[in-house]
Design a protein around this nucleic acid. Sequence first.
DNA 1: CAAATATGTAACCGATCGGTTACAAAATTC
DNA 2: GAATTTTGTAACCGATCGGTTACATATTTG
Lengths: 106, 106
Amino acid sequence: MAIDKTIAALADPTRRELLHRLASNPCRAGDLARGFAISRPAVCKHTRILGRAGLIRAKKIGRERIYELAPGGRDAVGLLIKKLEEVGAFWDTALGAFKRYLEEKQ
Amino acid sequence: MAIDKTIAALADPTRRELLHRLASNPCRAGDLARGFAISRPAVCKHTRILGRAGLIRAKKIGRERIYELAPGGRDAVGLLIKKLEEVGAFWDTALGAFKRYLEEKQ
DNA sequence: CAAATATGTAACCGATCGGTTACAAAATTC
DNA sequence: GAATTTTGTAACCGATCGGTTACATATTTG
């Protein structure tokens, strides 16, 4: 699963809220959409993006579709956090970097 | 600084690479662009997005513009990691959730 | 079988993204 | 002062996003 897609998927507050709801319970598509200001098809698009990012999955039961957190999602988020911790470390490396830069300039 | 913008800014590999370069040294705009396959104006657009996300800043020296990691960026990334750890916790909550869901259904 | 329900998809819209080339502006250099 | 360098911005492009309404499809239900 491409990490970029996972990050992008988590950049949207609606999608984070969808994950939040699925955390407590798997949910039928309709129930999942209920309570959002946006339309059901709009929510459907968000679930598609979350699915492509490997964060949720759906199983079809009769005419209903039950969404739930994807098993691999935990790993995806974990990997992401690790990646971001690397990014965070940049700021440590950067301590005194501007000073160094000015020194090198002469 | 809106957390959504920070996440979105980090979703792009080119922008992460830009941060990576700025980690070791502040950098003139031109040097920062050097080595990328894309054009200099394209890089300029990325720096604008990173700037809006509070991750980098520039100081003008003569006709040059020196980019560096923004001081507040560390906090922004830290906050982001915290947020993502919350998201990661969803998967713990979700343990056995589908089982619960089926039970409730009857 | 007909009606109702649950859901996804298609077509469209305006905004933004990531890229390009061409240009404008400010500071150096000769 | 003219030429060069450094940089950002404007105008454009195709793709994607986040939203809409309208529709197609499959499954229950009466």
